[in-house]
Structure formats: structure tokens, C-alpha cells
Design a protein around this nucleic acid. Sequence first.
DNA 1: GCAATTGATGCTCATTGCGCATCAATTCTG
DNA 2: CAGAATTGATGCGCAATGAGCATCAATTGC
Lengths: 306, 306
Amino acid sequence: MSINCEILDLRAFLSVVELASFHRAAEALHISQPALSRRIQKLETVIGAPLLERTTRHVSPTALGVELVPLVRRMLEEFDGSLFSVREIGVNRGGLVTIACLPTAAFYFLPTVIRQFNAEYPNIRFRILDLPATEGLQAVARGEVEFGINIMGTSDPDLAFDRLVEDPFVLAARKDHPLAARPEVRWADLAPYHLITVYRSSANRTLLDSALAKSNIKLRWFYEVTHLSTSLGLVEAGLGISVLPQMATPQGEHPFLVTRPIRNPEISRTIGVVRRRGASLSPAAERFLHMLMGTWGKAALAGIKA
Amino acid sequence: MSINCEILDLRAFLSVVELASFHRAAEALHISQPALSRRIQKLETVIGAPLLERTTRHVSPTALGVELVPLVRRMLEEFDGSLFSVREIGVNRGGLVTIACLPTAAFYFLPTVIRQFNAEYPNIRFRILDLPATEGLQAVARGEVEFGINIMGTSDPDLAFDRLVEDPFVLAARKDHPLAARPEVRWADLAPYHLITVYRSSANRTLLDSALAKSNIKLRWFYEVTHLSTSLGLVEAGLGISVLPQMATPQGEHPFLVTRPIRNPEISRTIGVVRRRGASLSPAAERFLHMLMGTWGKAALAGIKA
DNA sequence: GCAATTGATGCTCATTGCGCATCAATTCTG
DNA sequence: CAGAATTGATGCGCAATGAGCATCAATTGC
């Protein structure tokens, strides 16, 4: 039969050894001295050997006790530092939230919310897998992450989506580009210029091509790159213009680049949270998601970035 | 207030996860199913979060549960292998030593020392993770093992190395190969023959190429394989010759294969013990390491296998 | 020698954990 | 698709356990 005792027994033993007093240890453990005395005695009975040598005025560990102290200390450190202590999450305990996020969203979506979250829960760590849309969905489906921030659209019976925000596709151009002079442009206005796009099978490209096809619009792509950020690099270099999700464009004033809304039609992608149906989240992830939905979910209603 | 639960709670949780059934787990734990159900529920209440997702026909760990399984497993293994279980061992103290070891060293390094150690401490068990060099170092760094036996070289501020032995690279050839006739060979002698090597990014290959480059020697690799043992297989099949750490070659007489030292220059790898700085070892690991260093550490001075 | 202090014990009582019986939900089979 | 089988959860009664209070015996300091 395997040995059974309580974690409090281990704490009691360690506390008596460290404080060299049942009275002081009982105080530290918030139990009475007789209760502590009995607890240690029971532990020794279960183990079948004494752990402490004691008179009415002196207590110290036996040879066995000495040998067990490092193990007990290590076990308690591991236990207390682990997610078994998530209940105390609001005070000092740690945790880890693992999420998959579109690269474009990782930069512009998460920092504000994570900063706000870590102000409240300073010891929650984050592992952010910044993955393209398809791989991000797969990571969620496989349970590699607790949830993902992704483009809404693909229907999968095992995945549940909650919308966060609408992210329109906008024109990115150099400030000295003719189109930069206009407050907004139409798709037809783009026709005369070199377009820089992302690779054909990316989710963004698929969504965009599909939406344009519905309006009988076909754009002339001239450069194809792998990452949206590379698109911006080429635009800045003067090679052409690009159509990008607004989220992927520089926020605020840029020395060389501007963005312009594109109308007729206005096309946008819906960004949301994707989770496996029925799967529960860790307490830390649950709280973070709550904050994320609270922050960005409001923006979904207003149609603006928070 | 610190979390308190019983060791049996942890066993219960782990058992349910591993057996995916409350009924089977209750059986294994020698308690009734309702008792187990309540025990898990109480544990979840104490922790403040669910550990298991369950219907009447299915049970699996939550995200939090998944994260806790390795910790619980480790804690229970440590606890059960420790002197807390002296009652069950009866006479001699038990324990568990977990180490990471290069596959080549696992076979030829450990058996003699473990045999000697278990003669003295018959109830210390061993878990040996035989991992390639890089993964072995990572296992040590992550605290998955108490120490590792690895190639010395990479400097990591969090890891401490103690040298054990020098392991020279030797030629492995079939007995009927022309080079087998010589008592020793030089690197230049290998040039006319097909060489079988391991994959480029392996630690052994990196070390060897680097050392040869210093002497302006570049070998013509003809076959590239993943494992050292496959090298020997191809040599035996007559496809060519190979350069291997002596430790990876057959000890004693082999029906078809011989090894020959390679001079000019003689190249060797330094095998040593790697530990996390500042981390304490369990008593059993401490004693084993002492014996290991005593046995093989002497060999490091003499430059021969013990 | 006496007082102060400590760990252990007797006692009472509230709390806990057990197994049995049973329920509701889920899944399988005919 | 209905019924049977199986599983995890719950109600219940009861034995076991762990708590604090009061007190004891032993030890040490003044």
C-alpha cells in the first residue's frame, strides 16, 4: 500500500525543523500546538520511523528527518510554485497562458491587454504562438493552445468562435504616391499601379480575392511576399502599393507611409477568439480571455480600434 | 493560506487521468468509486478550478489538469522513491535517480557504475533518458532530470560541467578492409574510402568537423545517417568506413568489425556531468554521482576506460 | 527549589470520509 | 429507435478523524 499523508503534514514537519519548536511552528501553521504534535506523531506512524527527536525543551530531526528535509522542501516549493496554487492567482501566484495569434494581431491586439492584465496579475506568463491563420486554427484544434485569435470564417464543428473586432482592408502607400492625396479610394483607383500582395494560399489573400470576385473586381498583383510586414517594407521602398488589413499597418503617424480606406465595396475581415468546443480554460486563461473580450469586444460594437 | 491536500488526492487525480475512468482508478486505489469521485471534487474545490472534464461516459483532464500531470507524476515518483517509503522497503532505503545520458554513454558508461552502486544500495531505482546531446542539455536545464552525462563544450551560465572522461574518435571498419590491417591510421589514410557519417547538426559531427577544420582536413562524407548505431550497421554491411566516438563502437572482440585509433591529429570529445547551477540533488543522486565521478573521473586522468 | 516553558495526553465535539443504494446521463446493441 | 448496460454524481447513515481546551510530566533557567 502506498504511503498517504497530507501536504500540511510535510509543511508541519519542515516548519518544526526550521523553527526548532512545536509552539512556534504551530503558530506559523495557524493550528494549535497539540494539533501539531498529533499531526507529526501520525506522520511518523504512517512512515514507521521517527522524524524528530524531542524533549520538552528541545526538538531536532532524526537522521531520517535530516535526509528528508531537502526532499520535503523541494516538493513544497514545486507544489506551491505550481498551478495547484492558482486559487491565489490574484495575489502572487504564477501561471502560464498559451495562445495562438495571427502575427498581425499579436503586435497590435495583445500588448495593451496583456499589459493591463499583468498589472492586475503580475505573475501570469504568456506563450504566444504567432502563427498564420490556418496553422493557428490547427493549433487550437489540436489543443496545443488554450485559445486562438484568428480570422473568423471557416466553420468547424469542433471549434467555437467569438467575434472580437472588424478589421477593414486598407490601402497602404507612400506619402508621395498619387493615391495618398485622396482621403479615400475605390478599388478601381488601384488598377493603374503595381500591387504588392501576400502569397496566394494565405487566409488574408483568400478572403480578399473571394470578396472582390463577388464584385467582379480582379486586381493585378505585381509582387507576392510571404509576410504582411514585408509588404509594408516594399511599399516604403517605393515598389508599389499594397492592400492590407488595417491591423497590419503602422499605427499613428508614419514618416513615409499613409493608409486610406477603400470603398465600393468596403471589405473587412472579422477577427475573433477561437476555442475548442467544450474545452475548459485554465483559470488564468479564463481571466485573460474575459479581459480580452471586455477590451476588444467593445471595439467590435463600435467598429473602431480600442 | 497555503493549499493543503493529501498525497492520495494526487494519486487519485493521476490515476483517473491515466486510466480515463473513475471506476478503474477507484479499483487501482482500493477505494470505492463514490469515494474517489468526492475526493476529486474536494481537490478541485481546494484548488478552485476543475482538473477533469467528465460526462458519465468520458473523463479527461482540463487544460489545468494537463499542465499539472507532469508535476504530480514527478512529485509522486519522488515521494514514493524517497525515504518516506522506508516502511515498504523494509531494510534498505529506496530512491529514484533520474538522469539524461548520451545514448552512446548509456550503454557503456552506466552499467558498471550502476551495478556497483546497486550492490551497495539495492533499492535505488534509475530512470535514464538516453537523449542526443542537445536534448540532453535541455532536459537538464529544464529540471527534468537531476543531472546529465553529456559532451562538454557549450557554455551555459545556468549549467555546470564536471569532466568525466575523454572519448577519442576512432575508425570503424570491417576486418577485411585494407585499413584494418594497420594498428593505427592517419586522417589522410581515410581519403580514398567512402565515409559514413551522422547528420550535420549533431553534436558529434559539429565537434568533429570543427576539430578537423583546425587542421585543414576535410573529409569526403558519402553516407549520412541519423544515429551512430546505423553507422556501424552500414560499416558492417561493407558500404564504407566510419569515424565514431570509441564509446559508440563495440567493446571487445567483434566478428566483423575492428576499430583503429586515428592520429595526426588525435581528436576526442570530452564527456562530463552537467547539472543546473545551484540545484540540490536528492540524496540518492548525490551518492550515485559521487560514485560515478570516483569511477570514471579517475579514468579521465588516466585517459582510459575504467 | 521553584517557576516558566514545552511537548504529550485526556476529553469532548464538530467535521470528514467512507460504502451502500440510487439517480440521471451517456453510449452501445439489437 | 428503444432498451440495456455502464458511468459519474448524490443522498444517507455511520464510523473515524482532527480540532481546541484543560491539564500533565519533563526540562531548563533563575
